[in-house]
Design a protein around this nucleic acid. Structure first.
Lengths: 326, 326
DNA sequence: CTGAAAGCGCTTACAG
DNA sequence: CTGAAAGCGCTTACAG
């Protein structure tokens, strides 16, 4: 591998001048620069990023920490972040924690050792002091999709509003007994969706017996089983699930009980994952534009890296109407 | 950030000794080592990987290049690779190319600039000279899932056998008119699946008019549309799709034509993605154990990095029987 | 506009 | 078993 010294020799200048020609941070005579560029071409010289990083304390890499790459929400997020990063000359380390705190802390250590310039987290459950510590030490950090209560820099959805919109829509379509299938409420995104549901139900004066919130469901299997047994005897007009996978599980439970979707029971999801359009019937849901949010999170991180000021962003959800609500 | 010099001062030794204590590559007196370890604890010293990499020419990172992170096959692959990498103290750069060759070449450059120790590719379509060049220069490279004809090091599925098994199974279940919905045959995985189908059909003496191969379908939309129009008038006993997403698209087309799955037309997929279990009816398919394959690919790469010898691995597929075949 | 020198934080022959 | 010195490949004051 040729070094900057080889280039310098070939161009008949000093390494300093080559460095300056490359960085553009100091003036270099036009002809000199041309000779240098030629030498670089001829030698196929690539600057050594390690040496550069060592000197500059900057590596043009960021870390993205996600809890579960097999949940299709997170690849979509990753794509948003990565595309925006590439546009800006950054490379991203994608790290998957399996919702495991010790793996997460491990990654944070490793990424810092590798001198990433900043970190994007999409992965807070019940512990977040390690993230708070980072924010306090002024290390560039952005919370994406999932956040903790007092996070400084974040890009999140207005989950409360999204859930309200959904219930409101179901109400307008004539549904009265609306059940809610909810995920782990230690995640603020789920507790917010729950509050949205609860408030909407209350506002519409729906009888409490009709508004049924099934909380802390974690897997599709769990959702399907729980719902299947609840559906024994009792029957709602609609089931609103706090995520698309849960909505799909709900569909299965409803169908196994011999009910039709949406004729007997309407089903509504949340997030608008790719799969939502491909289930049968296609799922009516609330969109969380994760690609855009990922791009936004990277832009925010870049500002933090450049020591610019930044304010939290709360994205507005939208209704995506398909065929699972009658 | 404390450096090795700070540690040395605190422990009353030279930086060289600290380095040796840390690497274990040379003997250090027991008490000295203890003092050093104490100092490291007290200062919370983390070695600077950039400096280390600069000296050693090794970074304990590898790159994983995938074509489309939103296709659920690839996150599963990534998980397999990443888990195995973590076990071995490696971190992976996950790079998504959107099936775009120039993005791919760009990433290869960037990753080499960042001194990754090796590269895993799951992403060959029609051009692969850049990968051949890497292999020729003895840079550690493993081809995963997708490979080019003479790839030196690869982990792939026996796609030919998988397709044959599927047709054989359909035949045994009484299906005679079996259509095949195939992806881009420039990918050897699809051309192999196609050959498997064709040979199985021929062996069973199925009349050519019955065996219908629909080639070079690229998206779910395309699959659905094409099939929908072919289903006008004509009707097979079964449709075997060369991937699960295509099978799901096929289901939609079949249902829109008013046929039932599997009563009127059986449908079979390939790959056994998570989604396969969750469609309605649950999809009978051929498994490609991508997590295991990802782990295997990393192990192979590690051997190459350590200059050990390595032979290509071809994984055996298995039938996954659910409910979409009558 | 350009060069010589020092330094980023490590590791590793070389000496003892 | 340990230390002093050189060097990995860059960048950046300092001088001119």
């Amino acid at each position: 591998m040729p070094t900057i010294i080889d280039v310098a020799k070939r161009a008949g200048v000093s390494p300093s001048t080559v460095s300056r020609a490359l960085s553009g941070r100091a003036p270099v005579k036009f002809e000199t620069k041309q000779r240098i560029m030629e030498a670089i071409k001829e030698l196929d010289f690539k600057p050594n990023i390690l040496a550069k990083g060592l000197k500059e304390g900057k590596t043009n890499t960021v870390g993205l920490i996600i809890p579960n790459i097999c949940n299709p929400l997170f690849p979509a997020i990753a794509k948003g972040v990565e595309d925006e990063a590439r546009k800006n000359g950054y490379t991203v380390f994608l790290c998957n924690t399996d919702e495991n705190l010790s793996i997460e802390m491990d990654y944070v250590e490793k990424l810092k050792e590798r001198w990433v310039d900043g970190l994007i987290f999409a992965t807070v459950k019940d512990r977040y002091d390690h993230i708070e510590d980072l924010e306090k030490s002024r290390f560039p950090v952005v919370l994406l999709v999932r956040k903790y209560p007092n996070a400084l820099h974040s890009v999140t959805l207005d989950n409360y509003e999204g859930a309200k919109m959904a219930v409101e829509y179901l109400w307008q379509r004539g549904h009265r007994r609306i059940w809610f299938l909810c995920g782990d409420t230690r995640l603020s995104l789920y507790s917010d969706r729950l509050s949205g549901y609860l408030d909407a139900v209350k506002q519409r004066g729906i009888d409490c017996n009709c508004g049924r919130a099934i909380e802390n469901i974690n897997t599709m299997e769990e959702a399907e089983k729980t719902l299947y047994s609840l559906l024994d005897g009792d029957r709602p007009d609609a089931i609103f699930a706090a995520s698309d996978p849960m909505a799909i599980a709900a569909m299965r439970a409803v169908k196994s009980r011999g009910f039709r979707v949406p004729e007997d029971i309407s089903i509504m999801g949340f997030d608008d994952l790719d799969m939502a359009a491909y289930v049968d019937p296609p799922l009516t849901t609330v969109s969380q534009p994760v690609r855009e949010m990922g791009a936004e999170a990277f832009s925010m991180l870049l500002k933090l890296i450049n020591r610019e000021s930044v304010r939290p962003r709360v994205i507005k959800p939208e209704l995506v109407i398909r065929k699972s609500v009658r």
